[in-house]
Design a protein around this nucleic acid. Structure first.
Lengths: 210, 210
DNA sequence: TAACCACTAAACAATATGTTGAAAATTGAG
DNA sequence: CTCAATTTTCAACATATTGTTTAGTGGTTA
């Protein structure tokens, strides 16, 4: 029994691996089942024993990625609860998240590019956003201070963070996770320090940008 | 001569219109040339007289959208130069940008969804980012104060802004452009007021989120 | 009138799809 | 070792889509 499962698993893995390899040079749209099975050196019919179609294949890879992301964030946040008073620790947590992205960067680089599937960035952001939202809800003083609808705040902040990630991945990971954390914090501070606090000011401000 | 051009233009427009209508109910990937020409009630061969393939069709619609966006931002920024000292005017400018998004929301809603084409959000952000970058470069004091690489700052701020737009469009434009401007400014102020300015602080801060 | 242009209609080879049925290879249990 | 179960292979199938082509229609221009 277990050897059958093992064999089944190996074939699925082979299909996924071949699929991802092809995806580096060819867009999802233009990839055929034949491309995949030729690369994986299996019969075309075998593919259909494991997946309904190529969308099903991509879905399963996506689901795995989101599950991994969720677990990683959960782990970070449980650790965060006990030591959330230290800035150093916060930086470590952000760095760990960038570290996760670094680990998954081969997949993310493809999925976020035009070789991937439409809407991935939204599904990715939603998965991320859900975790952040869950954590924010525990913080009563935060909720009390927030004047704008939560979903808009979440869209803003998670998109900003994922924007950094996208740029990082696109740049071929030209920074360490630690450096990325510093950039993230620097930008937040920059927005803080370059905003005009009073409506009558006319200094160069972040709001001037948009 | 001009009647030929007019007929040509009408047919192209009919193709684009049919294409966008189908795109509301069917993903770009699954749409066939036959779907488009049946809806537009033209011969399938006629499609190929106007477009190389369906990617070319989408490209041209995208290019038009980006050109419109660029022109709109340019117009805003030229007006901005003369009156950039007043907060009210800044809000008006942001509102005008949200207004443009509102106008284009039928297209954006589709292109940003999973019915669109992979990588659209990146191309859209790049088009937006280029305009913001161009404007920022003129501001010497801004450049001098910025410690992080420009491309990362641009990714952060444009992604955040487009995150708001995505949420807004997804919500079926549940706010007015004016309200969206208020939300944008409120979030910036919220980040400003809820950030810990000193590394030793332990209050609930925005950096706690990530 | 004659050349021109946008479009139609129908056919074409080539390729991909998803499914099927029979057989081969591998593994498990007796 | 043998037989049954399981996974995969192989080849064939109808169907659909692609991009191209060739011939022809009707209106336009010069």
């Amino acid at each position: 029994m277990s050897i059958y499962m093992e064999k089944n698993r190996r074939t699925k893995q082979s299909i996924q691996k071949s699929f991802m390899r092809i995806l580096e040079n060819k867009s999802f749209e233009s990839i055929t089942i034949g491309d995949i099975t030729k690369t994986a050196k299996i019969n075309r019919g075998t593919f259909y024993l494991h997946y309904k179609d190529k969308f099903d294949l991509l879905d399963q890879i996506e689901q795995q990625l989101f599950a991994d992301l969720g677990n990683h964030i959960d782990e970070l946040q449980s650790r965060y609860s006990s030591i959330h008073t230290l800035k150093k620790e916060q930086e470590q947590l952000a760095a760990k998240l960038f570290n996760f992205i670094e680990m998954q960067s081969p997949i993310l680089k493809i999925f976020l590019s035009d070789h991937g599937r439409a809407g991935f960035h939204i599904r990715f952001r939603d998965a991320f956003s859900e975790k952040v939202h869950y954590n924010l809800q525990k913080n009563e003083s935060f909720i009390a201070n927030l004047k704008v609808p939560m979903e808009y705040f979440l869209s803003f902040i998670t998109s900003a963070f994922l924007g950094l990630i996208e740029q990082w991945v696109r740049n071929g990971l030209d920074k360490t996770p630690h450096e990325m954390t510093a950039i993230y914090i620097d930008i937040i501070f920059f927005i803080q320090n370059n905003l005009e606090p009073m409506p009558t000011s006319n200094a160069n401000t972040v709001k001037d940008l948009l």
